[in-house]
């Protein structure tokens, strides 16, 4: 996997410029806060990067909202789920031709039906580790993650949280082990669509004759109601901000374009007529 380090590094370094604005109706002061600009890692989660945003805006909202202090975000009315990587949310709702990404910051009217609460950074860590474990359950029947020590788990998290590529990958490469006994049983992937629940199914990396399954086969298996590959006329298939060719082996995508949570997050959006 050493020769692929550049790809992994490039993916890791993906950033999205974001302009945060406080919801107008929640401003409780005469003075209006300035927008706040940040360049955030695609691989991260919003609660890990919004401390400064919170400090910027919290003094402008009502006392009771300040006391409660739970910040949530929306893009054009669409609440954003903190427990999905930021890059997934951008690929799903954002537009690379329209940067920075304009998000609205809220403290009131938490959309209980749509979002999960995020009480602390520990909640992000618990969610992250649970997702890594789920991925390894699919890949190696949990054998790799269970064979690790507590300190390896901690290193995986701190490496991720502190944006330390080498620290993270020295542990993560064991989870990405894919040879001999440790060949992936299934590919951990999730399909995200704007108005649909997340789709996740069992999908083997190779077919019966040992040939690698492609992205096209993965899409046919999970979204059989669409006519792949012709559906690309109407839909975009985006992974890590890229539209990969549908004949790319799914296993290669899993090894190289998975998020740090070890899942391959595939976003499917509608191709607008004005595009391309």
């Amino acid at each position: 996997m050493a020769e692929d380090r550049e790809i992994l590094r490039e993916v890791w370094d993906g950033r999205i410029p974001i302009c945060f604005v406080l919801a107008r109706e929640e401003i409780d002061t005469l003075e209006e806060p300035e927008p706040y600009f940040l360049l955030v890692p695609r691989q991260s989660y919003f609660p890990l990067v919004t401390d400064k945003v919170h400090r910027q805006f919290v003094k402008y909202v009502k006392q009771e909202s300040q006391a409660q202090g739970e910040l949530w975000l929306d893009f054009e009315g669409q609440p954003l789920r903190w427990h999905h990587p930021i890059g997934v949310l951008f690929d799903l709702y954002g537009d690379p031709k329209n940067l920075p990404w304009h998000l609205t910051v809220h403290y009131e009217n938490f959309p209980e039906d749509e979002l999960l609460h995020c009480p602390s950074k520990e909640a992000v860590e618990a969610h992250f580790m649970a997702t890594v474990k789920e991925a390894d359950a699919l890949k190696h029947r949990s054998q790799v993650i269970n064979g690790m020590q507590k300190k390896d788990h901690k290193q995986l998290w701190t490496g991720f949280q502190n944006d330390k590529f080498d620290q993270f990958w020295s542990v993560n490469r064991k989870l990405m082990e894919n040879e001999g006994e440790e060949i992936f049983k299934h590919i951990p992937f999730r399909i995200h669509q704007p108005d649909s629940v997340v789709i996740q199914k069992l999908f083997k990396p190779l077919d019966d004759s040992g040939e690698p399954h492609t992205l096209e086969q993965l899409l046919k298996c999970t979204l059989p109601e669409y006519d792949w590959p012709d559906e690309l006329k109407y839909k975009r298939v985006i992974i890590q901000g890229i539209e990969p060719r549908l004949d790319t082996p799914a296993l290669w995508l899993s090894e190289h374009l998975s998020y740090p949570d070890n899942f391959l997050h595939i976003c499917i959006t509608t191709r607008l007529e004005s595009e391309d």
């Binding site: 427990h83 618990a126 969610h127 649970a130 997702t131 993650i145 997340v198 199914k201 069992l202």
Partner: peptide, 16 residues
């Protein structure tokens, strides 16, 4: 082994 996110469908977990 793992605690699924609260918004995960039971059907999805069953399938996998």
């Amino acid at each position: 082994s793992f605690a699924p996110s609260p918004d995960t469908d039971i059907g999805t977990l069953f399938d996998c």
